[in-house]
Every structure is written in structure tokens, then in C-alpha cells.
């Protein structure tokens, strides 16, 4: 099996650690295994490049994002506009660079919120029994059944002005969007973590640790949680894509950023009606989202392989 792809980290890691005469550390070991995961390492590079171009891009590409040029509407890629233009003749490269900042930030932050809330709720429910579990699962069920659209409208109505006053227009909207997207995506994570916990907490190694007198917190953090991370990582990587796309639907409710601020999801949505007239419009936005998703997923794969030496070759 191992011969099919690259060498097995679990086989090689041990001799390296031994010969290096360094103190064995699970963290360093994991890092080494992660870096051996070539796709994961490459993905880190890709993400770093994306981030870099988004941060430095505006310095190099100086066309403003909202420069309307009716003479160059729906122009295909050219030297003047490497990514082409949209239906108002606005430069898509500039818009992609600007939008990337928001989309990536929203994607990662919302994923973070969803994972943290999901893991905490799931772990609490999975380790405790009786009323705490029931109450937390009730909360999960409640969130799953809430109709999102009316709730979002209510949230805008109640909190937009407050957050705007508190954090300024952009900051307020950002926090609101991250909280809303994350707040609607933690439930599957919580259910998955709980299910893993229910199974894991009865396993022998947990029993053993418990018998050795490990505290409950230690039991959860050091023993159960790392073994429950598989589905969590998958959920997290899917959530990044979902959050980037969800942001675009939010702006259609007036909850997202102001309509003149482009984000990747928004660009894709605007482009869809022009798919057969100006395919380049959708191509770059869709491609950027896809690239991000692939990178994140390979990193996720690398992480899960790194975290458990026994798994995968």
C-alpha cells in the first residue's frame, strides 16, 4: 500500500527521531510528519501566496475596484485587464484582490467560530450525561430548526446599528457576518464530536488513562479529543468553502458588506447570469474559491495524518 505514494511517515519518523538524538516530542514529530505530506506542504505555500498577493496586490495593481469604464464592458482577459472586466467595465483583477481579503478572512474566521463552538458544545455533551447532554442537544436541535432568513433579517434589524457604532461600518459588518455564518454552522460539528465522544469515552485507552488518575479535563484534551478530530477537520475544511459562498448570499439580504464591495462569492453570483456571454467573469472567482478549498483540504489531510502516527501508512 505504501509503495503507491510517498514514503510512510510513521515508519520513518521513529528512526529519525532516534538518530537525531533529540528528545522525542509528539509536537515536533507531528510537524515533521505534516511536512512530509507533500500536498499539504505545497498547499501551505499556495495559501501563503494567495494571502501575499491579496495583501500586496493593491500596491502593485493600482486600478481602483470601482472604476467604471463603459467602453470596456465584459472585456475578456487582456494585458490591460488580466482577468477581464465585468458588465460595468470594472477591472476584475482589482476586484478579485480586494474581495479576496474579505472572503478569506470571513472564510477562516467563520470556520474558527463554527469549530470552536461545535467542539465545545459537542465535547461537553459527549462527556457529561443526563441533563447537560439533553440541554446541549436541545440547543443544537433548536439551532438546526431555526429558519435562517427571517432570523438573519431580525439580526440585521436588531444589531446592525449597534455593531456599526461600536466597531465602525466595516468592522461591525465583519464581526456580524462571521458570527452569523459561524453561528449557523457549528451544529453538525457539535453532533459529530458528541457522537465520537460517546464511542471513545468507553474505549480501553480512555479507561486506562482514567484508571491512572487522569483528570477529566486532561482526559478530554489529551486522550479523547485528538482521536475525535478526524470528522472535525473535514467539517472545518468544508466550512471554509461554505462560508465564502454564504457571505455572498448574505449580501443579498443587506447583511453583508455594502453592495459595491466585491467578494469572491459575490463575484461568482453576479457572474452567473453572464455565464454564456462572459465566462471569464465566473472563471476567476470560481477558480479562486476552488484553489482555496483544495489547499485547505490538503492541509486538513496533512493535519489529520500528522496528528495520529498510527493512521495512514
Amino acid at each position: 500500500m505504501a509503495g503507491l505514494t510517498h514514503a510512510s511517515p510513521s515508519v520513518e519518523a521513529a528512526p529519525v527521531a532516534a538518530s537525531g538524538k533529540r528528545r522525542f516530542s509528539p509536537g515536533r514529530d507531528a510537524l515533521r510528519r505534516f511536512l512530509r505530506h507533500r500536498m499539504a506542504a505545497a498547499s501551505i505555500l499556495v495559501l501563503a501566496l494567495l494571502a501575499l498577493s491579496i495583501v500586496l496586490g493593491p500596491l502593485l495593481w493600482r486600478i481602483p475596484i470601482n472604476e467604471i469604464d463603459f467602453t470596456a464592458r465584459l472585456a475578456p482577459p487582456s494585458w490591460e485587464h488580466p482577468f477581464g472586466t465585468d458588465d460595468l467595465g470594472q477591472d476584475l483583477l482589482a476586484r478579485m484582490i480586494y474581495g479576496g481579503r474579505i472572503s478569506l478572512a470571513v472564510g477562516f474566521a467563520a470556520m474558527g467560530v463554527a469549530l470552536i463552538v461545535g467542539i465545545v458544545v459537542g465535547a461537553l455533551a459527549g462527556t457529561s450525561k443526563g441533563p447537560v447532554d439533553a440541554a446541549l442537544m436541545w440547543l443544537t436541535d433548536l439551532f438546526l430548526s431555526l429558519p435562517q432568513l427571517p432570523l438573519l433579517l431580525l439580526i440585521i434589524y436588531l444589531f446592525r446599528d449597534f455593531l456599526k457604532g461600536w466597531l465602525g461600518p466595516e468592522g461591525g459588518v465583519f464581526v456580524l457576518i462571521v458570527l452569523v455564518i459561524g453561528g449557523f454552522r457549528w451544529m453538525p460539528v457539535a453532533r459529530l464530536v458528541r457522537a465520537q465522544f460517546l464511542s471513545l469515552r468507553e474505549k480501553e485507552f480512555v479507561e486506562a488513562a482514567r484508571a491512572l488518575g487522569a483528570s477529566n479535563v486532561r482526559l478530554v484534551v489529551r486522550h479523547i479529543l485528538p482521536n475525535a478530530l478526524g470528522p472535525v477537520i473535514v467539517a472545518g475544511t468544508i466550512d471554509v468553502a461554505a462560508a465564502i459562498i454564504a457571505e455572498s448570499t448574505l449580501s443579498f439580504l443587506g447583511l453583508g458588506f455594502p453592495p459595491d464591495i466585491p467578494t469572491w462569492g459575490r463575484l461568482l453570483f453576479d457572474a452567473k447570469d453572464y455565464l454564456d456571454i462572459a465566462p471569464h467573469w465566473a472563471l476567476f472567482a470560481g477558480g479562486a474559491i476552488f484553489l482555496t478549498v483544495i489547499a485547505i483540504n490538503f492541509i486538513g489531510d496533512g493535519l489529520r495524518d500528522a496528528l495520529d502516527p498510527r493512521k495512514v501508512m
Binding site: W138, P147, L151, L153, L154
Partner: peptide, 19 residues
């Protein structure tokens, strides 16, 4: 009771939602 609770929250939410 948990469904009753959910239904109450849903109802209040819909009543308060703008529109």
C-alpha cells in the same frame, strides 16, 4: 417540552422579524 420550547422561540422570532 423541548419541542414546545422550540416552537415558542420560533414563533417569537418570526413575530419579531421585520417585514
Amino acid at each position: 417540552p423541548s419541542l414546545l420550547g422550540i416552537s415558542l422561540i420560533l414563533f417569537v422570532l418570526l413575530a419579531l422579524a421585520p417585514g
